[in-house]
Amino acid sequence: MAVAINCAAKAGEWIKSRLGGYHDLNTKQSPQDLVTDVDKGAEAMIRKLILTHFPDHAILGEEGVAPGAAASAAALKQASESEYLWIVDPVDGTTNFVHGFPFFCVSIALAYKGEVIIGVIYDPMRDEMFVAEKGKGAYIHGQPSKVSSDAALSGSIVAVGFNPDREFALPVNMRGLNALSGEVRSLRAAGSAALHLAYVAAGRLSGYYEVGLNAWDVAAGALIVKESGGIVTDTTGNPYHIGVRHLIASNGKIHEELLGVVRAADATGL
């Protein structure tokens, strides 16, 4: 945990210092899927720090994987053969970072034999550190993290995502978004899967839905939600594991309602 927190804090502060000062801007899967020298530099920093302490551990980082669902699944399968696997997204919310929209974070998880046991999300713009250890609860700067008490979808704020995969994920997400818009109090789409999950854990959101995610987007956040008293499943209600790409997270009380709306809209992605 100490290593994960240290990595997130150091990378996050460096990322913040580079806001508005990146040099190389490129695209990956689509023109909406951005990567900068800051993403690559932050991941290199995190890798070096982890391997200094745990040279035998494996690391799965976003910037080391080719774009696309097939490449992501193949990289995860290969990496999962390791007993200890760090799952890293150095800048979750790169598009926000590029445009100066202050909603991005560092996400770091550690899986042991395929199960996430540590999750850390750091928001450098607000200096908020969300942490969880399996079976030991979740915390925000030392204060216990707890999901919201909203009991019905109609009284809930739910986050959604606009996935950069324009061929498959975005149309499915739009069906889900349209269906949810008439059922919830309000929708939010702030552009960082990891921070959406952290906000569910903190009770700021009551749910989050998105199709087409990757392990590094959600591994840390899924544990933080669960350790805060929430529920994380795939879009059909099966329990979360690190291979899940189509996700629903909630405070638990609205979970079945969320699943029902997404199923009825044919928006599960499965």
Rank of each mutant, 00 (worst) to 15 (best):
G68W: 05
E257N: 07
V116K: 05
K77D: 08
A193L: 06
A249P: 01
A73H: 05
P239V: 05
P90K: 07
G135H: 06
Y122C: 00
D234W: 02
A193S: 10
M129K: 15
R47P: 05
L60N: 05
M45P: 04
W14S: 05
A66T: 15
Y209L: 13
S80P: 08
L270G: 07
F104S: 03
D92K: 07
T233Q: 01
A249W: 03
K136F: 03
D37V: 03
H196C: 07
S82Q: 10
A71S: 09
K253V: 03
N173R: 03
V158K: 04
N238L: 08
G191I: 08
A193M: 08
Y84Q: 14
G64L: 10
L51G: 12
K253M: 09
V261P: 12
E83G: 14
S181V: 03
G12W: 00
C105V: 05
K40Y: 09
C105P: 09
K146C: 08
I242D: 09
G21S: 13
E128I: 09
A179K: 05
A179C: 07
V116Y: 01
K40Q: 15
V261G: 11
G61Q: 08
S186T: 15
A265H: 06
G221N: 08
E13L: 13
V38T: 10
E81S: 11
A2W: 04
Q32A: 02
E63M: 03
E183T: 09
A169I: 05
A75R: 10
S192Y: 01
S154M: 11
A219H: 02
A138R: 02
G230M: 00
G207S: 06
L223V: 12
L205Y: 10
I248W: 07
H99R: 14
G20L: 05
G119F: 00
G260Y: 01
A73V: 14
H141A: 14
Q78P: 00
N26T: 15
R47V: 06
K48G: 06
I5D: 06
S72H: 11
A201E: 02
T235H: 04
Q78T: 13
K10T: 10
A11Y: 00
V172R: 01
A219N: 13
N26K: 15
A132D: 01
K113Y: 02
P55H: 04
G20Q: 11
A111N: 07
E210C: 11
N238M: 06
G207T: 02
V116Q: 00
R175P: 01
S186W: 15
G64D: 15
K28W: 03
S107K: 02
L195P: 07
A8P: 09
F104D: 03
G229D: 08
I248G: 01
L19Q: 12
A9Q: 15
A58K: 11
A151H: 13
I5W: 09
N251I: 10
Q29S: 15
D217L: 08
D123P: 10
R245Q: 04
V244Q: 03
Y84F: 15
T236Q: 13
D33T: 00
Y209V: 14
V91G: 00
K40G: 04
A151K: 14
G41W: 09
R188S: 07
T236R: 14
I46Q: 11
R175C: 03
E256N: 09
G119N: 06
F104R: 11
S250K: 04
